[in-house]
């Protein structure tokens, strides 16, 4: 594997995370519990789709095979997607959506902070730009997790259920493989395992303010990042997202 091949894979991971999560939260548009939340979710989705254009745009450039961000987003099948499993999990109720968002935002903000020091200036520039948006996502999702965790007995119980459901998907964000090792040795991206301590501190603080109990299990599902074992949910998401492009391959939209 050349450095550029590894970089391409790394950029797909970043872009697929934002693409799939952006798509997921866009499913809420018009259906949120209160108008302000509807606007905030759409805003987050919009940021994530914009970030996707940057990451996948650069991925296409690095690959050098004439695939732009749209080509990569709309013309790959499940096994070529490299997002972590967490972001493809279904929305569930509003609590599950916001818990998933928080668990991802916490990782995302730390990751982007490190990427701002990337040896690859293109990566550093994207991280600089998107880091500001993600800092806001994190502030908002953390506040909501605290508000609902420490709200009514029902909201507390729902947030605990969401945390229990999503917890086994956290570990994948910190698992390292050959691509990560190559990125770390080139100074392009940090070793994912090195983010864990800061993540745990942040998440523990917020979940404790939310009066939620962190699950004891350390078991972790994996296979999303590698693309080898996605959940059944991703195929349905892609079916919807890619349908027009696939049904009318010769059309320009």
């Amino acid at each position: 594997m050349t450095r550029d091949e590894a970089l391409f894979q790394f950029l797909l991971r970043m872009g697929d995370n934002t693409l799939v999560l952006g798509h997921r939260i866009s499913e809420w548009c018009g259906h949120a519990p209160v108008l302000e939340e509807d606007i905030a979710l759409a805003n987050t989705a919009l940021d994530l789709i914009g970030q996707t254009q940057l990451w996948l745009g650069l991925a296409g450039e690095v690959e050098g095979k004439d695939r732009d961000a749209d080509r990569l987003a709309f013309h790959r099948d499940v096994w070529d997607f490299h997002n972590v499993l967490l972001v493809e999990m279904p929305n569930g109720d509003f609590g599950q959506t916001l818990m998933r968002q928080f668990l991802f935002d916490a990782w995302h903000s730390i990751m982007l902070g490190r990427l701002q020091k990337s040896a690859d200036h293109r990566v550093a520039e994207i991280a600089e730009k998107t880091g500001k948006e993600v800092a806001y996502h994190l502030e908002r999702s953390a506040d909501t997790v605290v508000g609902l965790g420490d709200g009514t007995p029902e909201s507390h119980q729902r947030m605990q259920a969401a945390l229990d459901y999503l917890w086994p998907y956290i570990g994948e964000m910190f698992a390292s493989d050959d691509i990560d090792a190559e990125m770390a040795s080139a100074g392009i991206a940090p070793d994912p395992a090195s983010l864990r301590e800061e993540y745990d501190a942040l998440v523990t603080k917020v979940l404790s303010d939310a009066t939620l109990a962190i699950p004891q299990s350390t078991f972790s599902h994996k296979g999303g990042k590698a693309g080898t074992h996605h959940s059944e949910h991703l195929g349905h998401l892609l079916t919807q997202m890619q349908w027009l492009q696939r049904a009318y391959p010769d059309a320009t939209w």
Binding site: D38, I39, A42, A45, D70
Partner: peptide, 21 residues
């Protein structure tokens, strides 16, 4: 929104529906 055919069109539509809200 979930079936918009390009990332740009998806972003435009999302922004529009957000404006309506």
């Amino acid at each position: 929104i979930t079936r918009a055919p390009t990332l740009q069109r998806k972003a435009i539509l999302l922004a529009k529906v957000q404006d309506e809200a």
